[in-house]
Amino acid sequence: MQLSAFMRNNFFTEIMATITYIEAISKGLWEEMERDSSVFLIGEDIGVFGGAFKVTKGFLKHFGEERVIDTVLAETAIIGAATGAAVVGMRPVAEIQFSDFVTTAFSQLVNNTASIHYRWHLSCPMVVRLPSGAGIHGGPFHSRNPEAWFFHQPGFKIVAPSTPYDAKGLIKAAIRDNNPVLYFEHKRLYRHIKGEVPETEYLIEIGKGDIKREGNDISVITYGSMVHMALEAAEVLRSEHGVSVEVVDLRSLMPLDTELIFSSVRKTGKVLVAHEDNITGGIGGEISALISQHCFEYLDAPIQRLGSLDTPTPYSPPLEEFFLPNTKKVVAALIELAKY
């Protein structure tokens, strides 16, 4: 049984609090900073202001300005300084205010940070927090899901939680990991998603996915914001079409939980790979290839993919809505798959 399912089913022994996704990230950060004095935060507007999204509100007062560092506006310097500090034994958590702006630090991350262990045989225990995703009318430069760029570069671990429970467990695991971990937190989930989180300490192993809903007819392989659309769509398919949909939440994108993906696909024989990132060159392409290579004889239908349009993210509400995947689009894709 998945750890999270175990936790959820054992509510008699666990005292649970219902908190938002953003509170879960904050709590995880806070606990790790309390636990380990080598953990520090570095980024723009994270101290006095508490972060553009208030993830680190109250941290400066409690931990002081040496551990909650407001920097100059310079992403390359933030990532480079975090990398340097990590290599000599600190555990920095860098915040890139919007994941879109990580492009400015792309060279540092891809050329330097990611390959340190391979070239230097040294650990680089750092986390980069990347508020990402669309659906907030952020337009072309405050809406990206840039995980695929880093998925292609060997050396990163990449996580993208969808629930408060996973968000907290993964930020704690990311901080304790001895590798650079890119932590994609979806901006639209921050205050829209609430969930139960144990008061006692827990971690979620990086590289392990989670079945968010069990089903027998179709598998949806997804992560981040689309987990919630997939869950809504699965309910529509059950109630209106009598189709049983399984929702596989990857949680970790690197490494991928291929065992979980394959076991779900082998059970259902039909699969929809879905992410909010645009389709072409997205992680879904790699997942589809893996499924077709390893589960070909189990497939009863061609692998379907769903994602955003291959355009920049448009600003105006009707354009953005058309651009993004949503529950309706997931339902439509699942109905098509059910016909095979």
Binding site: T83, G84, V87, V88, N112, R119, L122
Partner: peptide, 29 residues
């Protein structure tokens, strides 16, 4: 292009300038 943590030598990569943010990082540490 190597690192020797005992001697605290951290060699360059080929991208010019890329080590300076890291040097700022060890200075920060």
């Amino acid at each position: 292009h190597y690192a020797d943590p005992l001697l605290r030598i951290y060699g360059n990569i080929s991208h010019l300038g890329a080590m300076i943010p890291m040097a700022a990082g060890t200075a920060l540490a």
